[in-house]
Simulated assay, not measured.
Amino acid sequence: MTPAFASALMPLMRRVDAETAHGWALAALRAGLAGRDAAPDDPALAMEALGLRFANPLGLAAGFDKDAAAVLPLLRLGFGFVEAGTVTPRPQGGNPRPRLFRLEEDRAVINRMGFNNAGLDSFLARLRDLPRPLPGVLGANVGVNKEGAEPERDYPMLCRAVAPLADYVTVNISSPNTPGLRDLQGEDRLRAILRAVDAPALGKPVLVKLAPDLADDALPALVELCVGQGVAGLIISNTTLARPETLRSPQRGEAGGLSGAPLLERSTAMLRAARRLAGPRLVLVGAGGVASGADAYAKVKAGASLVQLYSGFAYGGPALVRRIKDELAALLRRDGVARLADAVGVEA
Protein backbone atom coordinates (compact mmCIF):
# COMPACT_ATOMS: atom_id res chain seq x y z
CA MET A 1 0.00 0.00 0.00
CA THR A 2 1.23 3.51 -0.80
CA PRO A 3 0.80 6.61 1.41
CA ALA A 4 -1.54 8.04 -1.24
CA PHE A 5 -3.79 4.97 -1.11
CA ALA A 6 -3.76 5.02 2.69
CA SER A 7 -4.79 8.68 2.61
CA ALA A 8 -7.66 7.85 0.28
CA LEU A 9 -9.10 5.73 3.07
CA MET A 10 -9.21 8.67 5.51
CA PRO A 11 -12.93 9.46 4.89
CA LEU A 12 -13.74 5.92 6.07
CA MET A 13 -11.77 6.50 9.26
CA ARG A 14 -13.85 9.56 10.01
CA ARG A 15 -16.98 7.43 10.22
CA VAL A 16 -15.87 6.23 13.67
CA ASP A 17 -15.06 8.33 16.73
CA ALA A 18 -11.72 10.12 16.69
CA GLU A 19 -9.96 8.09 19.35
CA THR A 20 -10.99 4.75 17.82
CA ALA A 21 -9.77 5.97 14.42
CA HIS A 22 -6.48 7.01 16.00
CA GLY A 23 -6.03 3.55 17.46
CA TRP A 24 -6.76 1.98 14.09
CA ALA A 25 -4.22 4.28 12.44
CA LEU A 26 -1.48 3.23 14.86
CA ALA A 27 -2.33 -0.43 14.33
CA ALA A 28 -2.21 0.02 10.56
CA LEU A 29 1.15 1.75 10.82
CA ARG A 30 2.59 -1.04 12.97
CA ALA A 31 1.32 -3.57 10.44
CA GLY A 32 2.99 -1.73 7.57
CA LEU A 33 -0.33 -0.86 5.93
CA ALA A 34 0.36 2.86 5.50
CA GLY A 35 3.12 2.25 2.97
CA ARG A 36 6.36 4.15 2.73
CA ASP A 37 7.80 7.02 0.74
CA ALA A 38 11.07 5.88 -0.79
CA ALA A 39 11.62 9.02 -2.90
CA PRO A 40 14.64 11.06 -1.82
CA ASP A 41 14.05 14.49 -0.33
CA ASP A 42 15.04 17.62 -2.21
CA PRO A 43 18.53 18.53 -0.92
CA ALA A 44 17.34 22.12 -0.45
CA LEU A 45 15.14 20.93 2.43
CA ALA A 46 18.00 19.51 4.50
CA MET A 47 18.51 21.28 7.82
CA GLU A 48 21.29 21.29 10.39
CA ALA A 49 19.80 22.02 13.81
CA LEU A 50 20.33 20.92 17.42
CA GLY A 51 23.65 19.47 16.32
CA LEU A 52 21.73 17.01 14.16
CA ARG A 53 21.12 16.61 10.44
CA PHE A 54 17.52 16.48 9.26
CA ALA A 55 16.85 15.30 5.72
CA ASN A 56 13.83 17.60 5.80
CA PRO A 57 12.36 19.91 8.45
CA LEU A 58 8.97 18.21 8.76
CA GLY A 59 8.26 16.38 12.00
CA LEU A 60 5.37 14.63 13.69
CA ALA A 61 4.48 16.29 16.99
CA ALA A 62 4.22 14.45 20.29
CA GLY A 63 0.81 13.07 21.14
CA PHE A 64 0.29 10.97 18.03
CA ASP A 65 2.57 8.11 19.07
CA LYS A 66 2.50 8.39 22.84
CA ASP A 67 4.04 4.97 23.49
CA ALA A 68 6.65 4.93 20.68
CA ALA A 69 4.68 2.10 19.08
CA ALA A 70 5.06 3.18 15.43
CA VAL A 71 8.24 5.26 15.24
CA LEU A 72 9.83 3.38 12.34
CA PRO A 73 6.69 3.22 10.13
CA LEU A 74 6.11 6.93 10.73
CA LEU A 75 9.67 7.83 9.74
CA ARG A 76 9.24 5.69 6.61
CA LEU A 77 6.37 7.94 5.55
CA GLY A 78 8.98 10.64 4.97
CA PHE A 79 9.02 12.65 8.16
CA GLY A 80 12.39 14.19 8.92
CA PHE A 81 11.78 13.49 12.59
CA VAL A 82 9.22 11.96 14.91
CA GLU A 83 8.66 13.02 18.51
CA ALA A 84 7.31 10.13 20.61
CA GLY A 85 5.43 10.65 23.88
CA THR A 86 4.36 12.32 26.06
CA VAL A 87 5.62 9.65 28.47
CA THR A 88 5.15 9.87 32.24
CA PRO A 89 6.99 7.99 34.97
CA ARG A 90 4.08 5.66 35.71
CA PRO A 91 1.35 4.36 33.39
CA GLN A 92 -1.91 6.27 33.47
CA GLY A 93 -5.23 5.95 31.73
CA GLY A 94 -5.83 9.65 31.15
CA ASN A 95 -9.17 11.39 31.28
CA PRO A 96 -12.55 9.67 30.72
CA ARG A 97 -13.72 9.10 27.15
CA PRO A 98 -14.84 10.75 24.98
CA ARG A 99 -11.77 12.99 25.09
CA LEU A 100 -10.81 13.54 21.45
CA PHE A 101 -13.06 15.53 19.10
CA ARG A 102 -12.90 16.43 15.43
CA LEU A 103 -13.96 19.94 14.42
CA GLU A 104 -14.17 19.07 10.74
CA GLU A 105 -15.69 22.37 9.64
CA ASP A 106 -12.68 24.12 11.18
CA ARG A 107 -9.98 21.57 10.25
CA ALA A 108 -9.26 21.39 13.95
CA VAL A 109 -9.14 18.99 16.88
CA ILE A 110 -9.92 19.35 20.58
CA ASN A 111 -8.32 16.88 22.95
CA ARG A 112 -8.38 16.37 26.70
CA MET A 113 -6.50 13.08 26.66
CA GLY A 114 -4.62 13.69 29.91
CA PHE A 115 -1.23 12.12 29.14
CA ASN A 116 -2.64 8.62 28.69
CA ASN A 117 0.35 6.32 28.15
CA ALA A 118 1.85 3.00 29.19
CA GLY A 119 4.57 4.55 31.34
CA LEU A 120 8.32 4.94 31.18
CA ASP A 121 9.39 1.28 31.37
CA SER A 122 7.28 0.31 28.36
CA PHE A 123 8.42 3.41 26.45
CA LEU A 124 12.09 2.60 27.04
CA ALA A 125 11.60 -1.01 25.97
CA ARG A 126 10.11 0.11 22.66
CA LEU A 127 12.94 2.57 22.05
CA ARG A 128 15.51 -0.14 22.75
CA ASP A 129 13.82 -2.43 20.23
CA LEU A 130 14.07 0.06 17.37
CA PRO A 131 16.53 -0.92 14.62
CA ARG A 132 19.43 1.48 14.36
CA PRO A 133 20.27 3.65 12.57
CA LEU A 134 16.80 5.05 12.11
CA PRO A 135 15.85 6.75 8.82
CA GLY A 136 15.29 10.04 10.63
CA VAL A 137 15.64 11.87 13.92
CA LEU A 138 13.86 10.64 17.06
CA GLY A 139 12.69 12.92 19.84
CA ALA A 140 11.24 11.91 23.21
CA ASN A 141 8.65 14.10 24.94
CA VAL A 142 8.38 13.77 28.74
CA GLY A 143 5.77 14.89 31.27
CA VAL A 144 4.58 14.20 34.81
CA ASN A 145 1.78 12.08 36.17
CA LYS A 146 -1.51 13.63 37.21
CA GLU A 147 -1.12 12.31 40.76
CA GLY A 148 1.97 12.04 42.94
CA ALA A 149 4.12 14.20 40.70
CA GLU A 150 7.21 16.02 41.91
CA PRO A 151 8.34 17.94 38.83
CA GLU A 152 11.82 18.78 40.12
CA ARG A 153 12.35 15.05 40.68
CA ASP A 154 10.40 13.55 37.79
CA TYR A 155 11.58 15.64 34.82
CA PRO A 156 15.30 15.06 35.48
CA MET A 157 14.68 11.33 35.98
CA LEU A 158 12.72 11.11 32.74
CA CYS A 159 15.29 13.07 30.76
CA ARG A 160 18.15 10.92 32.01
CA ALA A 161 16.21 7.75 31.20
CA VAL A 162 15.27 8.60 27.59
CA ALA A 163 18.36 10.58 26.55
CA PRO A 164 20.54 7.55 25.66
CA LEU A 165 17.82 6.25 23.33
CA ALA A 166 16.65 9.48 21.65
CA ASP A 167 18.30 12.21 19.61
CA TYR A 168 16.71 15.00 21.65
CA VAL A 169 14.41 15.38 24.65
CA THR A 170 11.43 17.72 25.05
CA VAL A 171 10.24 18.89 28.46
CA ASN A 172 6.46 19.26 28.17
CA ILE A 173 5.17 21.82 30.66
CA SER A 174 2.34 23.13 28.52
CA SER A 175 -0.38 20.52 28.07
CA PRO A 176 -3.67 22.01 29.29
CA ASN A 177 -5.04 18.62 30.31
CA THR A 178 -2.95 17.84 33.41
CA PRO A 179 -4.03 20.05 36.33
CA GLY A 180 -1.34 22.52 37.32
CA LEU A 181 1.07 21.60 34.54
CA ARG A 182 0.98 24.98 32.85
CA ASP A 183 1.84 26.61 36.18
CA LEU A 184 5.30 25.11 35.65
CA GLN A 185 5.84 27.73 32.91
CA GLY A 186 6.20 30.31 35.65
CA GLU A 187 9.74 31.61 35.76
CA ASP A 188 10.65 30.34 39.22
CA ARG A 189 9.19 26.85 38.77
CA LEU A 190 10.71 26.41 35.33
CA ARG A 191 14.11 27.57 36.60
CA ALA A 192 14.03 24.95 39.36
CA ILE A 193 13.07 22.21 36.89
CA LEU A 194 15.71 23.14 34.33
CA ARG A 195 18.41 23.39 36.98
CA ALA A 196 17.51 19.89 38.09
CA VAL A 197 17.46 18.59 34.49
CA ASP A 198 20.92 20.11 33.90
CA ALA A 199 20.68 20.16 30.12
CA PRO A 200 24.40 20.72 29.44
CA ALA A 201 25.24 17.51 31.33
CA LEU A 202 22.56 15.40 29.68
CA GLY A 203 24.48 14.74 26.48
CA LYS A 204 21.46 15.35 24.21
CA PRO A 205 19.68 18.58 23.20
CA VAL A 206 16.85 19.59 25.51
CA LEU A 207 13.82 21.48 24.22
CA VAL A 208 10.98 23.12 26.15
CA LYS A 209 7.44 23.09 24.77
CA LEU A 210 5.45 26.24 25.52
CA ALA A 211 1.75 27.06 25.41
CA PRO A 212 0.34 29.64 22.96
CA ASP A 213 -1.72 31.12 25.80
CA LEU A 214 1.29 32.63 27.56
CA ALA A 215 0.99 36.34 28.18
CA ASP A 216 3.14 38.27 25.71
CA ASP A 217 5.10 39.90 28.54
CA ALA A 218 6.02 36.46 29.98
CA LEU A 219 7.92 35.30 26.90
CA PRO A 220 11.09 37.43 27.19
CA ALA A 221 11.93 36.13 30.66
CA LEU A 222 11.29 32.52 29.65
CA VAL A 223 13.50 32.84 26.59
CA GLU A 224 16.36 34.24 28.67
CA LEU A 225 15.84 31.58 31.33
CA CYS A 226 16.04 28.78 28.77
CA VAL A 227 19.16 30.25 27.19
CA GLY A 228 20.76 30.62 30.61
CA GLN A 229 20.00 27.03 31.58
CA GLY A 230 21.50 25.53 28.44
CA VAL A 231 18.25 24.63 26.71
CA ALA A 232 18.80 24.03 22.99
CA GLY A 233 15.41 25.07 21.67
CA LEU A 234 11.72 25.80 22.09
CA ILE A 235 8.67 24.18 20.55
CA ILE A 236 6.07 26.83 19.82
CA SER A 237 3.43 25.87 20.50
CA ASN A 238 1.21 23.36 22.26
CA THR A 239 -2.59 23.41 22.02
CA THR A 240 -4.66 26.43 23.09
CA LEU A 241 -7.51 26.86 25.55
CA ALA A 242 -8.76 29.82 23.53
CA ARG A 243 -11.82 29.42 21.31
CA PRO A 244 -11.74 31.79 18.33
CA GLU A 245 -15.12 33.24 17.41
CA THR A 246 -14.63 31.87 13.90
CA LEU A 247 -15.13 28.25 15.03
CA ARG A 248 -18.17 26.68 13.36
CA SER A 249 -18.16 23.08 14.53
CA PRO A 250 -20.80 21.88 16.99
CA GLN A 251 -17.89 20.41 18.99
CA ARG A 252 -16.30 23.83 19.59
CA GLY A 253 -17.52 23.98 23.20
CA GLU A 254 -15.75 20.83 24.31
CA ALA A 255 -13.14 21.28 27.05
CA GLY A 256 -9.50 20.65 26.21
CA GLY A 257 -6.73 21.92 23.99
CA LEU A 258 -7.57 23.16 20.50
CA SER A 259 -5.17 22.38 17.65
CA GLY A 260 -5.24 22.64 13.88
CA ALA A 261 -5.96 25.48 11.47
CA PRO A 262 -7.39 27.96 14.03
CA LEU A 263 -4.06 27.87 15.90
CA LEU A 264 -1.90 28.80 12.91
CA GLU A 265 -2.00 32.58 13.25
CA ARG A 266 -1.49 32.77 17.03
CA SER A 267 1.26 30.17 17.17
CA THR A 268 3.13 31.76 14.27
CA ALA A 269 2.95 35.20 15.87
CA MET A 270 4.38 33.74 19.08
CA LEU A 271 7.08 32.00 17.07
CA ARG A 272 8.04 35.27 15.42
CA ALA A 273 8.24 36.99 18.81
CA ALA A 274 10.44 34.22 20.20
CA ARG A 275 12.78 34.50 17.22
CA ARG A 276 13.16 38.22 17.80
CA LEU A 277 13.98 37.60 21.45
CA ALA A 278 16.25 34.58 21.05
CA GLY A 279 17.94 35.25 17.72
CA PRO A 280 20.27 32.37 16.93
CA ARG A 281 20.66 31.34 20.58
CA LEU A 282 17.75 28.86 20.48
CA VAL A 283 16.51 26.51 17.78
CA LEU A 284 12.79 27.07 17.29
CA VAL A 285 10.34 24.38 16.25
CA GLY A 286 7.12 25.73 14.77
CA ALA A 287 3.93 23.81 15.56
CA GLY A 288 0.28 24.70 15.28
CA GLY A 289 -1.95 24.61 12.22
CA VAL A 290 0.52 23.25 9.65
CA ALA A 291 -1.33 21.51 6.82
CA SER A 292 0.46 22.67 3.66
CA GLY A 293 3.81 23.70 2.29
CA ALA A 294 2.73 27.33 2.58
CA ASP A 295 1.98 26.86 6.28
CA ALA A 296 5.38 25.25 6.85
CA TYR A 297 7.11 28.03 4.89
CA ALA A 298 5.36 30.66 7.03
CA LYS A 299 6.72 28.98 10.16
CA VAL A 300 10.24 28.88 8.74
CA LYS A 301 10.16 32.53 7.71
CA ALA A 302 8.88 33.42 11.18
CA GLY A 303 11.93 31.78 12.74
CA ALA A 304 11.46 28.00 12.83
CA SER A 305 14.30 25.73 11.75
CA LEU A 306 11.98 22.76 12.09
CA VAL A 307 8.21 22.33 11.76
CA GLN A 308 5.80 19.88 13.37
CA LEU A 309 2.27 18.83 12.51
CA TYR A 310 -0.38 16.66 14.12
CA SER A 311 -3.94 17.73 13.31
CA GLY A 312 -3.07 18.30 9.66
CA PHE A 313 -1.69 14.75 9.50
CA ALA A 314 -4.83 13.40 11.17
CA TYR A 315 -6.95 14.98 8.43
CA GLY A 316 -4.63 14.60 5.44
CA GLY A 317 -3.18 11.18 6.10
CA PRO A 318 0.20 9.75 5.06
CA ALA A 319 0.25 11.39 1.60
CA LEU A 320 0.32 14.82 3.25
CA VAL A 321 3.98 14.37 4.24
CA ARG A 322 5.25 14.19 0.67
CA ARG A 323 2.83 16.88 -0.49
CA ILE A 324 4.08 19.39 2.09
CA LYS A 325 7.70 18.68 1.21
CA ASP A 326 7.07 19.08 -2.51
CA GLU A 327 5.15 22.31 -1.97
CA LEU A 328 7.88 23.65 0.30
CA ALA A 329 10.61 22.89 -2.24
CA ALA A 330 8.54 24.57 -4.97
CA LEU A 331 8.15 27.70 -2.82
CA LEU A 332 11.91 27.87 -2.32
CA ARG A 333 12.47 27.64 -6.08
CA ARG A 334 9.83 30.33 -6.67
CA ASP A 335 11.63 32.69 -4.31
CA GLY A 336 15.11 31.85 -5.55
CA VAL A 337 16.16 30.45 -2.17
CA ALA A 338 18.86 27.80 -2.53
CA ARG A 339 18.49 26.25 0.93
CA LEU A 340 15.63 26.23 3.39
CA ALA A 341 18.09 27.28 6.10
CA ASP A 342 18.51 30.60 4.29
CA ALA A 343 14.81 31.37 4.83
CA VAL A 344 14.78 30.85 8.59
CA GLY A 345 13.61 34.01 10.33
CA VAL A 346 13.62 36.28 7.28
CA GLU A 347 10.26 37.74 8.32
CA ALA A 348 11.01 37.95 12.03
Rank of each mutant, 00 (worst) to 15 (best):
L202W: 07
A330C: 11
A6D: 01
E187W: 13
A49V: 13
A343V: 08
A84Q: 04
A149E: 01
A348P: 06
R112F: 03
A38R: 14
M113G: 10
P164M: 06
S249N: 08
K146A: 14
S175N: 14
G180Q: 05
M1S: 15
G180L: 11
L214P: 03
G256E: 06
P220V: 10
L225E: 08
R99A: 08
L165V: 00
A27R: 15
N117M: 12
D106Y: 04
L124E: 10
E254G: 11
P73S: 09
A31C: 13
A55W: 02
G260S: 10
D129W: 00
A341P: 09
P57N: 10
A296V: 13
V307N: 09
F79I: 05
L282Q: 05
R243T: 07
F79D: 00
F123H: 03
R36N: 12
G336A: 00
S174F: 09
G345W: 03
G35C: 11
A304K: 06
V321S: 05
R102E: 03
P133G: 04
V82Y: 08
A6R: 02
V169F: 13
D37I: 14
G59N: 06
D154A: 02
A69F: 05
E347G: 00
A232D: 00
A125K: 02
G59H: 04
L332G: 02
V208F: 11
L9W: 13
N145K: 03
E152V: 15
I236K: 00
S305C: 03
L33P: 14
F101G: 09
E265G: 12
A218M: 14
G136L: 14
R36L: 15
S7Q: 12
N95E: 05
V231M: 10
L271E: 01
A287P: 00
N117A: 12
Y297I: 12
P262A: 15
P89W: 03
L207D: 08
L247Y: 01
T86W: 03
R276F: 05
A8T: 07
N238I: 09
R323P: 10
A21V: 02
L241D: 12
K325H: 12
A215W: 02
V300T: 05
D121N: 01
R30D: 00
R160S: 04
V231Y: 03
G303I: 04
S259W: 05
D188V: 14
R281D: 08
A319D: 11
E150R: 15
A166N: 11
A221S: 06
D216W: 14
L181E: 01
Q308A: 02
G114C: 07
Q229P: 04
R15F: 04
A68N: 01
P11M: 02
Q251H: 14
V82I: 08
N116D: 11
T240Q: 06
S122V: 15
E150D: 15
A49M: 12
I236D: 03
N177G: 04
D216P: 15
L130K: 06
V137S: 02
D129Y: 00
A348G: 14
D106H: 10
L120A: 05
A255P: 09
L263G: 07
A274S: 10
A163H: 02
R128G: 07
G336Y: 05
D154E: 07
D216C: 11
R333K: 13
E48G: 15
L120T: 05
